[in-house]
Amino acid sequence: MLGYLLRRLGQAIIVILGVTLIVFVLSQLIPGGQARAALGPKATQSQISHFNILNGFNQPLWVQYWHYILGLLRGDLGYSYRNNQGVTALIINRLPKTVVLVGVSTLLALVIAIPLGMAQAVRRNHVFDYSMTAVSFVLYAMPAFLIGELLILFFAFTLHWFPSQPPSDASAWAVFTNPRAFVLPVVALAALTVAGFSRYMRSSVLDTLTEDYIRTAKAKGGSPRRILYGHAFRNALLPILTLLGLTLPAIVGGALIVEDVFNYPGMGLLTVQSASNDDIPLVLGTTLIATIATVVGSLLADVLYAAADPRIRLGGDD
């Protein structure tokens, strides 16, 4: 298990290094360079070269990358000239809000999808299965912003059950102290993943039910209930953990849209706002942090998998 974890950690570090390289290359692609982006189109040539010398942008690229990495290790993500503030300071209180949104809605999606997928597998090809399958497909085809807007139209404007957006000054933990304000964004994000998770759970349970040990359990006279919960459930659950790690980038991307729809002040909304302001350093900073958060999340999912699967836990071959 330790070997597996170390190898997995090494992979995550390589991926994060690679992402820093991609983000660095992107920052070099700005037409006219960072100086033009910071100083505006009216800057003179001497102002630009002064800016470049001041910020070390006249040095060879690999030196600049090295300084960028050193800066990242110190927690320095660059400077937002539009906001006259460091990127790190701007991101730091937004990140927990996105993490809480993604965490709570993913948990909700799992709590709905796992029993749903099992129920569909047990009643395979019955009316219940077919109707849930149809609902899944419609949900899967719906763009995130449409789900969000429809929820607002129906539950906020027509029924007045929930506010159309959480209070803008809410802290990251307000989702637990004032849950009513967060119902719509959390449900919108969960709706995006529930379809995929329940489909996967359904086929995973169906696969597991054909295993030899299930037949053995049946032959020994286990009741259907005992076979389903005692033997099939935990084994069918394992692939869901892998899926969780693989889906995480998509969930974080979905969170960006949901934050925009519900005006929820997380990393996604910050990214969208800074994109409209042409604040490239801030956009690149949020992209890097969102990716690192995603890689760490996937790593955690794999660690959970390793802890849950005896074939890995007891030191097998992967």
């Binding site: 991609i22 960006l256 490239i280 949020t286």
Partner: peptide, 12 residues
């Protein structure tokens, strides 16, 4: 590349 959330990369 696949570990970067698509929308963030796209917006950048």
């Amino acid at each position: 590349g696949l570990s970067i959330p698509v929308l963030f990369l796209l917006i950048a």
